[in-house]
Amino acid sequence: MKAKVLSPKQHALVDYALTGALMVLPSLLKLSKKVRWIYAAEATVLLPYVALTRQPVAVKGLIPFKTHGKIDPFNVAQFALQSLAPAFRKNRKELWFNLAFTAIAGATVLLTDWNGRTKK
């Protein structure tokens, strides 16, 4: 198995970037209003989750990083499953954006050192 390459800080920075992307990119890409609303709601839930996880760029470290690591696969699965919802499945641009976002989020989870031993 390959070494985990993302430190807790790097993982958090990617999470912040992905959350920001959910807020901005759907509008810039002119995705449907319904999909923009879905992503805005998801980002609203994800931002506090990232900001409150115990990691070097946390606003307040309340959630243990390992717990974050146990929750993240469910978040990725949720994004993957929403590809089956009509708002995504019936619209090519929305579907491809969601699949790309899911792949990036999934890669982030797989490449993270959840024990925090990766050099920073």
Results as ranks from 00 to 15, higher is better:
Met23Ser: 03
Met23Arg: 07
Leu25Glu: 07
Pro26Trp: 09
Pro26Ile: 03
Ser27Pro: 00
Ser27Leu: 11
Ser27Ala: 13
Leu28Ala: 00
Leu31Asn: 00
Ser32Lys: 05
Ser32Arg: 00
Lys34Met: 04
Lys34Leu: 08
Lys34Glu: 12
Arg36Lys: 11
Trp37Val: 01
Trp37Leu: 15
Tyr39Asp: 08
Tyr39Phe: 13
Tyr39Trp: 12
Ala40Gly: 01
Ala41Ser: 11
Ala41Cys: 15
Glu42Ser: 10
Glu42Cys: 11
Thr44Tyr: 14
Thr44Val: 09
Thr44Gln: 12
Val45Gly: 04
Leu47Met: 15
Pro48His: 09
Pro48Lys: 07
Pro48Ala: 09
Pro48Asn: 09
Val50Ser: 08
Val50Phe: 10
Ala51His: 02
Ala51Thr: 00
Thr53Phe: 01
Gln55Arg: 05
Gln55Cys: 07
Gln55Trp: 07
Pro56Thr: 02
Pro56Ala: 09
Pro56Asp: 02
Val57Ser: 10
Val59Tyr: 13
Val59Trp: 13
Lys60Met: 13
Gly61Met: 10
Gly61Thr: 00
Gly61His: 02
Leu62Asp: 06
Leu62Ala: 05
Leu62Cys: 05
Leu62Pro: 04
Pro64Gly: 08
Pro64Leu: 11
Phe65Glu: 03
Thr67Glu: 12
His68Asn: 10
His68Ser: 10
His68Gln: 14
Gly69Glu: 08
Gly69Trp: 06
Lys70Ala: 09
Asp72Ile: 01
Pro73Tyr: 15
Pro73Asn: 14
Pro73Asp: 15
Phe74Glu: 13
Ala77His: 15
Ala77Ile: 14
Gln78Tyr: 15
Phe79Lys: 10
Ala80Glu: 09
Leu84Pro: 00
Ala85Tyr: 12
Ala85Pro: 02
Ala85Ser: 12
Ala87Asn: 05
Phe88Ala: 12
Asn91Arg: 13
Arg92Leu: 11
Lys93Gln: 04
Glu94Ile: 04
Leu95Thr: 00
Trp96Val: 01
Asn98Glu: 11
Leu99Thr: 01
Phe101Val: 06
Phe101Trp: 09
Phe101Ile: 00
Thr102Asn: 09
Thr102Asp: 11
Ala103Glu: 07
Ile104Gly: 07
Ile104Tyr: 08
Ala105Leu: 13
Ala107Ile: 09
Ala107Thr: 05
Thr108Ser: 14
Val109Phe: 15
Val109Gly: 03
Leu110Thr: 01
Leu110Ile: 04
Thr112Trp: 03
Asp113Cys: 04
Asp113Trp: 01
Asp113Val: 00
Trp114Met: 03
Asn115Gln: 15
Gly116Ala: 07
Gly116Ile: 03
